[in-house]
């Protein structure tokens, strides 16, 4: 559905996108992750025709989006929710959708039906005649999603849609997006919070400084954390020589003091971990807890961002 190849964009001396390539399959819910300023919004803006690229290619549903003719034909196929609400405070929710229906040449009874259906889809039917200004932040965001669906697009670009929403509104938004995904729409959703996307996306792309660091399934992303297994040991008293004892073990690859105790990384099996624990106890080290942990998704995100092994590089 979406194929980006070697996309490059500079703002003066600043290179916002550097040979960025990614692909999203039909009907996929794709999470686009990156720190603030990584290039997510620029990529999305280029995809929807709001920004021009310096070079590269974007194929959406078989059409070159960077070609003016192609862009024009894609206007009915692409929906966009920017990272701000972009609503007219003086209109009612229904008038707002009618306005955008008119922008897609949908008028009269058709526009009425469309507006009602979209408001129902985003659970705002009871707010149809309320001023947009009086809606909560979450409701405004849902209205924006409804607006992006006016032309029944095949692909939706949502730029940080959950930003600033309370947990309830986030949950409702996620449900709407899952619902849209089940309707066969391809959804590209950006965020700088990976856990938020991992819950609902089938694949993710991680971008840093305008370069694609990872592009693949959630499972592949989590697999990258295999080497991120570690042992966390806490103590009920002075750990004494614990750190040197741990480092003596041949299977230990790293050990460091943390605020809680000692964090150990090792290429070991359960028997070797048992041996390590025995060694500490035999040496009168007051071990309180000894637990095997995995890095959390935030750590995975940071590792990939900081240049760990990347799927994008492997694919290249």
């Amino acid at each position: 559905m979406l194929e980006i190849q070697n996309l490059t964009k500079s703002f003066g001396p600043f290179k916002a996108l550097n040979n960025l390539s990614l692909s999203v399959n039909d009907g996929e819910l794709f999470g686009f992750v990156g720190a603030n300023g990584a290039g997510k919004t620029t990529t999305m803006k280029i995809c929807v025709g709001l920004e021009r690229a310096d070079s590269g290619s974007i194929i959406i549903d078989g059409t070159e989006a960077l070609d003016p003719k192609g862009r024009s034909s894609l206007r009915g196929k692409v929906g966009y929710v920017p990272d701000f609400f972009g609503v007219y405070a003086d209109l009612t929710a229904s008038e707002y959708l009618h306005f955008f229906a008119g922008a897609y040449n949908i008028w009269g009874r058709d526009a009425d039906i469309l507006s009602d259906n979209l408001l129902e889809l985003v659970n705002l039917s009871d707010k149809a005649n309320e001023q947009v200004d009086s809606l909560s932040r979450g409701m405004k965001q849902k209205l924006c999603v409804a607006r992006a669906l006016v032309q029944n697009p095949k692909i939706l670009f949502l730029d940080e849609p959950a930003s600033g929403l309370d947990p309830k509104a986030r949950h409702e938004l996620k449900e709407i997006l899952r619902n849209l995904s089940s309707m066969g729409k391809t959804i590209i959703i950006s965020s700088h919070i990976l856990p938020e996307l991992i819950e609902m996306c089938s694949s993710i792309g991680i971008i840093n400084h305008g370069e694609m660091k990872f592009n693949g399934s959630i499972e592949d992303a989590l697999a990258l954390s295999a080497g991120g297994e570690f042992i966390e040991i806490t103590f009920s008293g002075d750990p004494g020589r614990a750190l040197s004892l741990i480092k003596e073990c041949p299977f230990v690859t790293g050990a460091e003091l943390t605020s809680k105790g000692i964090r150990v990384t090792a290429n070991a099996d359960d028997a070797e971990y048992t041996a390590l624990l025995k060694k500490l106890i035999v040496n009168d080290i007051p071990v309180a807890t000894f637990s095997k942990n995995h890095e959390n998704v935030e750590d995975i995100f940071l590792n990939i961002m900081e240049g760990g092994s990347t799927n994008a590089e492997n694919n290249a």
């Binding site: 040979n19 070079s55 590269g56």
Partner: peptide
């Protein structure tokens, strides 16, 4: 103005 000029499919070797 902001959305017009695009070099299509140009390979960037940087």
């Amino acid at each position: 103005g902001n959305t017009r000029r695009v070099k299509l499919g140009k390979k960037n070797n940087n």
